[in-house]
Design a protein around this nucleic acid. Structure first.
Length: 543
DNA sequence: GTAGGGTTAG
């Protein structure tokens, strides 16, 4: 927050908090405007120290919006010094458009402002961000020419830059010749290997590192998880001498990403036994695991934990809670969390809409959708999967058509297979099979089997054998090993009493060695998650 | 008189 402005250097003390919500940001931007105006009026803007404070505040939250504001202040300064240039270059280096850091560096040279060691750190970081090898080389040349700039900070950034651009030999050479190398120098290369999924090289480097810190270990864990080597990640984790919450999260996130949800829940317990305090990232992952396996009581426990520990429910957590409650069957509680949450992001709205839709509250889902628009949120393609499936499930034919049209023509969203699927479902349910088929044809064929299956189901329900045969052929063409097309088609022939055709389909299935895979489902009873396989016995797991 | 390297996930 800004201090009240007096006609003194107090303006220099303007500070802004590191993390700003939208509302806070707006006020702080208006405060910046005030401060800027005041400084222009009093001439304080010509005081380089005061001006640099203003730029620092304006650039501190490097969202595109604030950074352009900082830049507009910057362009109106008469003689920006190197500190001010550095601040702007740093802001760009950390922004989504790091190329601008380089442009500003060029402008700095053009203005005869002498760069210092800080300048190089920021510019090189910017080059590393967009993997600008040529640009980075040129800056490297400047660093060498000026001489004073090349301390260990810059050397580490250079190592990272070359590694990130795939020049591992240069990176290793720099590292070997570095007199004061430390763990960060090693990590600078390690992180690049990990980012590119080169885990063998990463392992090699990791094994010969003279020093490792918690970050080095974390790189290895998330690196292995990133390429699907769950066991390796686990064994790195087990070897770790000192684990912090970030290490646990790396493992938990990896397991969640690999859809190993019961492992997530087990790890969460291990983590508590190890007396490591979970943070919001842990809890989001655990809640999503609860949602996936239907572990309602554990999900409730996490919710209570959040309340007990006064953890703020941000957009991420609100989304995870809404999703957990609705996937575990408690839509009332999902709605309660939703309406009580002080911060909703687009995913929070999306999960509420999708939840209401799956629970059969189509009208309510559409109501939430219009609330969302009224709140100024821009819907995305996930939103419309919820909206269209709500229409489909609730049988709202015209509303569904209208929403599909709005999605494309008002919100400019390209329909994906899920959207087509909902529409084909909806039209199929009403027996509007030609229109459904027309929509199904609009998709690339290879992506379409689910949608064609749905259309086939509709043909069966409305007794349109002719179209069904056509669709069934199409499905078999697409994927001769999948059983759905055969099963549906044979059921249809059976219904129509065409037993010869039934026999034909069965024969084809046998020839292709197609078997129908049993369905699988999980449900929690008395705190125990049971896994059901259709047609088989029950297999229960203690969670 | 202000600052910097590898990075923190969903």
């Amino acid at each position: 927050m800004l201090l009240p402005i007096r006609c003194s250097n107090n303006v220099c003390k303007l500070l802004s908090p590191p993390i700003l919500s939208f509302a806070e940001m707006a006020t702080s931007i208006s405060e910046l405007h005030q401060a800027h105006a005041h400084m222009l009026k009093t001439g304080l803007i010509h005081d380089t120290f005061a001006a640099s404070r203003l730029i620092t505040s304006a650039a501190s939250a490097s969202t595109p919006h604030t950074i352009s504001h900082a830049h507009s202040i910057f362009t109106r300064l008469s003689n920006p010094n190197s500190y001010i240039y550095n601040t702007m270059i740093r802001a760009y280096a950390n922004s989504p458009t790091p190329e601008n850091a380089l442009l500003l560096f060029q402008q700095m040279l053009y203005d005869f402002v002498v760069p210092d060691k800080y300048t190089f750190t920021f510019v090189l970081k910017g080059c590393a961000s967009f993997a600008g090898l040529e640009e980075g080389r040129q800056v490297h040349g400047h660093v060498l020419k000026i001489g004073t700039g090349c301390d260990e900070y810059n050397q580490n950034t250079l190592i990272h830059l070359y590694a990130k651009c795939g020049c591992f030999e240069i990176a290793h050479n720099l590292l070997d010749r570095m007199p004061m190398r430390d763990v960060i120098s090693w990590n600078a290369i390690l992180s690049a290997y990990v980012e590119m999924g080169l885990m063998e090289s990463a392992r090699h480097l990791f094994d010969e590192m003279h020093e490792r810190n918690v970050e080095s270990w974390k790189f290895m864990i998330s690196g292995y998880m990133g390429v699907g080597l769950v066991e390796e990640a686990r064994s790195v984790f087990d070897d770790m001498p000192l684990k912090n919450v970030v290490s646990w999260n790396a493992l938990i996130t990896g397991y969640a990403h690999a859809s190993c949800f019961s492992e997530v829940l087990v790890l969460f317990e291990d983590m508590q036994n190890a007396k490591v305090k979970p943070d919001d990232c842990t809890l989001v992952n655990v809640l999503s695991a609860c949602a996936r396996v239907g572990a309602l009581s554990q999900g409730k426990w996490v919710h209570a934990y959040i309340d007990r520990n006064g953890i703020k429910i941000d957009g991420f957590l609100a989304t995870a809670l809404v999703d957990m409650y609705s996937k575990c069957g408690n839509i009332e509680k999902a709605q309660e969390v939703f309406s009580n949450s002080w911060k909703k992001d687009i995913s929070t709205w999306n999960s509420m809409i999708a939840g209401l839709s799956t629970h059969g509250f189509g009208e309510r889902a559409l109501q939430i959708f219009s609330d969302m628009l009224a709140d100024g949120f821009k819907p995305n393609e996930v939103t419309f999967i919820g909206v269209l499936s709500a229409c489909s499930r609730a049988g709202l034919l015209n509303k569904g058509r209208e929403m599909f049209d709005h999605m494309v023509h008002v919100h400019g969203i390209q329909p994906t297979i899920e959207h087509y699927g909902c529409m084909v479902d909806l039209l199929g349910r009403f027996g509007i099979l030609e229109e459904a088929e027309e929509l199904a044809r609009m998709m690339p064929l290879k992506d379409a089997p689910v949608v064609w299956e749905s259309l086939l189901g509709a043909c069966r329900n409305h007794g349109n054998v002719e179209l069904a045969e056509y669709v069934g052929e199409k499905l078999l063409e697409l994927n001769p090993e999948d059983s759905t097309g055969y099963v549906q088609l044979s059921n249809m022939y059976a219904h129509a009493g065409r037993w010869n055709d039934v026999m034909e389909v069965r024969k084809k299935m046998k020839a292709q060695r197609v078997t129908k895979e049993p369905g699988c489902n999980m449900i929690e009873v008395d705190g125990i998650v049971h896994e059901f396989l259709a047609g088989e016995g029950m297999n229960s797991k203690q969670t």
